[in-house]
Design a protein around this nucleic acid. Sequence first.
DNA 1: GACGGAATCC
DNA 2: GGATTCCGTC
Length: 637
Amino acid sequence: MKTPADSGFAFPDWAYKPESSPGSRQIQLWHFILELLRKEEYHDVIAWQGDYGEFVIKDPDEVARLWGARKCKPQMNYDKLSRALRYYYNKRILHKTKGKRFTYKFNFNKLVLVNYPFIDMGSGRVPQSAPPVPTGGNHFRFPPSTPSEVLSSSEELRSPGMFSSVARRMARGSVSDCSDGTSTNSELEEAMGADERGMGPERAYRGLLPPRLPHDSFFRVYPNPAGLARHGPRVHPEPLSPFPVSPLPGPGGLLAPTLSPALSMTPTPHLPYTPSPSLSSPMLGSHFSFNAEDMKHYLQAHTQSVYNYHLSPRAFLHYPNIIIPQPHRPTPEKPAAHHLHGQQHPSLFSHSLGQQPGGGEEGQQYPSPFKLQPPPLGRKQRESGSSLAASSSSSSSSQSSSFTGSSQKINSALSAGPPKIKVEPISDIESEEEVEVTDISDEDELNHIDEDDEGDIFTRTARHHPHHQLNNHLRANGNGSSHSAPPHANPDDDPDDDEEVFKTPATPSLSGGGLAFPLIHLKSEPGQAAPISPGGTRCIPLKLRFKRRWSEDQKMEADGERDEAEDKKVRANGEEEVGGKREEVGRRVGEVENGGGREGAGGVILGLMLPPPPTQRRASSELQRATAQLSLENTGC
DNA sequence: GACGGAATCC
DNA sequence: GGATTCCGTC
């Protein structure tokens, strides 16, 4: 059982970060930890112990030394290393086992979802050291509800040794170019068996993968488009529940997936198990058994759900061409239409999901079957009432392009009154306790998804996105399309943002595909004409929009000119107050001019400020000038 | 020992 | 971005 070297657990090449490439010093600490953990040579230094995924650093100094050697940081010590480990807390990669010294616990679920988002599901290799399937055959059993239900403490079972190939590869890639002669990697290399050394990466990994099933079969969406979301972990603990499972295959190897550790390392009833933020909560009260076919479906759904709701936005930065459905929600009762079938629009997935530098063929090989879907509406957002409805109703547009942290700034600028949306760093928003859902969906079946431990990263980051805000504002002003204004209307001079929004393929038209909502084109090719929304409304250039507003306000101001004299008298008494307002407005204008709002955030800010109250007419004038200037700067729509 | 902020490096 | 380094706090 515990023969990691023989397990053959294979990750596809794309699963390996370039940091893991041979000679790279950029190996991440958690990689390294796993690397050590799989080596029996280092079991006196660090070893799996305790609950599943839990390990103890038996010799902190030595681990630090090894790490330092690996990173060519001779000054490394446990204090520094532990600091690095603590940074993993927020990332949910790791957490501390309270009360146990030097004991940490991997959150493989998060670890893999973030770092191995496109784990190959077509490989025929299965981790033999994965948690066992008690019943064998094609059936899987979910972990016990509570740790107390399992008493077995087999070290072997605890140890997620299916990382063997990963670690093997990491070991291969961990050859340090340090010349101090203390390279940990040399030790690790030596620790590897001859068979491992003899097998090149191509054979050891890539060779294991094909033949693969096409993605459209692997990631085929269920007949019920909403089925994915309907099988949430807590409300409907059904086979599609998006929590990890032990994907051991049946004799026929129906699944035969090369699963992410998150999936494969799920504890079984034999394993002691302590709920962890992301592993346990969906499992609570779940005790299932189902066949491999169900498992396959689940895995498909799970994988897709990862992309819909759970994946770290960072992972998406590598997949710039994803098209995000832009739900138009005149009738919130149509959430099912959000779930698109990948095979229906294969062109949508023509973009590459591969992220391996220099390995573009991988991405071409595996076009994305995923599209982001509007996350469900959370309780808090639902309860927030209609005041937020306008914002929520267009949140779907925001999700399409808001994998940036910059939206937080915008959100704060937009927030008037008590914030209804809690904006947190990405690293913090995955907290199960902190999940706040903002979506346009009213369908309860969807809502529990966002209560997953994985959190709804996209949801929260997306809904604050300036694109969304601007679109929302434009709609509110009646200037925009009845549908979401394409983000083309947004000035986006920030090249950084360009990297963080999904790019739209040349053939993005899903509008004719029977979708109940139009797609939002997150980014168009340079020079591309403003798209026509499915409703037929052409994008109104921001410049023109500002111009209109400018004209209106000019007219209004001219009308109010007659009152100016009287106003001055009043102002003479209230100069201080008005000045304060002017200062405030000026400050906000300054934010715009200073680029305080990216991606058209200025328009958003301005939009919320308009029309100004009569007492701020002068400030409005300044604002208008700033607006005009801004509009001139924003040439594109 | 553990935690996390802050500055800094790469 | 992912550490590394330093440090104050508990």
